[in-house]
Amino acid sequence: MKGLLYKNYLITRKYYFMAFMFSFITALFMILIRLSMICGNISHDAEAVDELTRSMWIFRYMPCAVIILGFAGYEETFFTDLNAGWTRFSRTTSLSANKIVGSYFLSSGIVLTSAYIICLLYLVIFCLSFGDKISLHYITNITSLFCFGVIKQYFNLTLAMFAQKRQTVQLIAISIALIFPWLLCAYIYPKMKELENPDTVLLEWMAQQFEPIKAYIFPVMLFLAVIFTVGGYFISVKGLERRTF
C-alpha cells in the first residue's frame, strides 16, 4: 500500500503546491487588508473600516471553498492514471481490488483531510486578525464544505472504478442534478411575483427561505459523506473486480 500511496502522492503533488500557494497568498492579502485598516489611508475613516470589515465575510469561506473543492477536483489526475493503463496493468499483478481501490480512497481522504485542517487553521488566523470569535457556526460551515468535497471526490472515484462509460454516467448524473435548480426556480419565480419590490428584498427574502434548510445542511452533508465513502468503497471494489479491459 505504501508504494501505491506514494504513487498517488507523486501524481497529484502539484495540487498540494497549488493549494498551499493559494492559502499563503490569500492569508497575505488578508494581512495586508488588516494592516491598511490599522495604519493605511482608511484607518481614520471609521465608516470605511466598518464597511471593509463587513465585506470581509467572503474571506472566511471563499479560500476554504477553493482549497477543499480544488483538492476534490484532483480526481481528474486519478482518471488519467486509471486511463493511462495503470488499472489494466495492476489487474495483471497480484494486487487485489481492495488494495487498488483502497489506495485511491485513502489518498483522497488524506488530501481532503489536510485541506480541511488548512481551512480550519486559516479560519483561526482570520478570526484572530479581525477580532472575530471562532464560533461553531464557522466550523460547521467549513465541515459541510469538506463533506461536500468528500461526496464529490468519492462519487467521481466510484464512477471511474465502476462505470465502463464514465462520461455517459456523469452526463446523466449532471442532468439529474440540474433538475433541482430548475425546480427551485420554478418555486422562486411565482413567489417573487408576489413581492412588491422584488429587486431590493430578493436577497433578504431568499435568505429567509433558506434559513430552515441551513439547519439540516450540516447533518445531511455529514451523513452523505459517510455513505459515499463507505458505499463508494464497496461499489468500487466490486466494480473493479467485474470490470473488463
Binding site: M1, K2, G3, L4, Y6, K7, L10, I11, T80, D81, A84, G85, W86, R88, F89, S90, T93, L95
Partner: peptide, 22 residues
C-alpha cells in the same frame, strides 16, 4: 502491453519504489 502503464510525471527511480510494493 504496447502502452506504458506508468504515469507520465513519474521517473524510473520512482517506478522502482512503487513496484517494490506491487
Amino acid at each position: 502491453f504496447d502502452e506504458i502503464p506508468f504515469h507520465e510525471v513519474l521517473n524510473a527511480n520512482q517506478v522502482s519504489v512503487i513496484l517494490s510494493d506491487v
